[in-house]
Design a binder for these strands. Structure first.
Lengths: 157, 157
DNA sequence: ACCCATTGCTTGACATGTCAACTACTCACA
DNA sequence: TGTGAGTAGTTGACATGTCAAGCAATGGGT
């Protein structure tokens, strides 16, 4: 048992007991999961997944320039090997086109297609709504705070 | 477009501009992902996954009583069908034992084994360390704050 | 006692995360 | 110019999330 045990009931005060480390991290994980589910729901009508959507957004950001495969992977939330298969499917759906690099033939340049762009256009609004809803009840100051606190959790160590 | 649009550029002030909704949600997702990776790293030595660990913890919480399959699933972070296969593997590893319910034969009662308990014992410390490290740089008040803000994001619609 | 909606799981199919091993290329250097 | 280290991707194998369909046991109503 930890030493904090001896503080007992908390001197009646206005502030609740500080949450345990485990409670904080759990809350982060649960919240992210909830957000993931809401995003997935918003994407469902177009039958694409959250990762596919992310890839398309990244490629739209570079449009009309292409990006090499691993550069796309790096801009996601990490992870490399999966990116190939992700792009495989997007290419089958003709939302993305890939061409072997000319200068450096190790590269595979990926570019979003017209179809990909218009599909994204359909999704922007629903996704923005999910995001707006998520933070609707937070004041600007609370939003800054939340981002700052999460940054601390993520960066240190 | 929302009414907040008219506030324009933010009157130069000391506070940074409020992050956009999309930036807030992205931060939550990124942070959760980072945490997931740290947890996975802590579990790697015992070769179990984060979901398997969660199941074992839930079952330890009920020990020595068993829990029906879907009750375990419900206590995770949602999701049902996956729980069966998860338990299949844990049973193969002999970390969990399942028996058909006697009263209600639709139920499958799951109980953690001795082996499961001692494996968990090995992991408690490393996992606690991950959690402690994650919040180490947060003051008690900041921890409360973070949990509160995440709660707002999660609960409101 | 019989029927059916409900409940508790299980399965199949597909997308993704993740690790490890492998191929194709490029580059600097001997 | 040949070679080896490093880079960019791909592929195979396995665990999980997720949806939809299917099965067996229950329980209430007739």
């Amino acid at each position: 048992m930890s030493t904090s045990e001896r503080r007992g009931k908390q001197r009646g005060g206005s502030a609740a007991a500080a949450p345990k480390p485990h409670e904080v991290t759990t809350e982060v994980l649960r919240t992210a999961d909830e957000l993931r589910r809401r995003v997935a729901a918003a994407l469902a009508p177009q039958a694409i997944t959250s990762q596919q959507y992310n890839v398309l957004r990244i490629l739209r950001g570079a449009y009309p320039d292409p990006l090499p495969t691993l550069e796309v992977g790096a801009r996601m939330i990490e992870k490399t090997p999966g990116i190939t298969r992700l792009l495989d499917r997007l290419e089958e759906l003709e939302l993305v086109k890939r061409v072997r690099g000319v200068e450096d033939r190790r590269l595979v340049e990926c570019r979003i297609t017209e179809g990909g762009l218009s599909l994204l256009a359909e999704l922007d609004e629903p996704i923005n709504e999910v995001n707006r809803d998520a933070v609707r009840a937070l004041t600007p100051s609370e939003r800054r705070s939340l981002v700052r606190l999460l940054g601390i959790v993520r960066n240190l160590k």
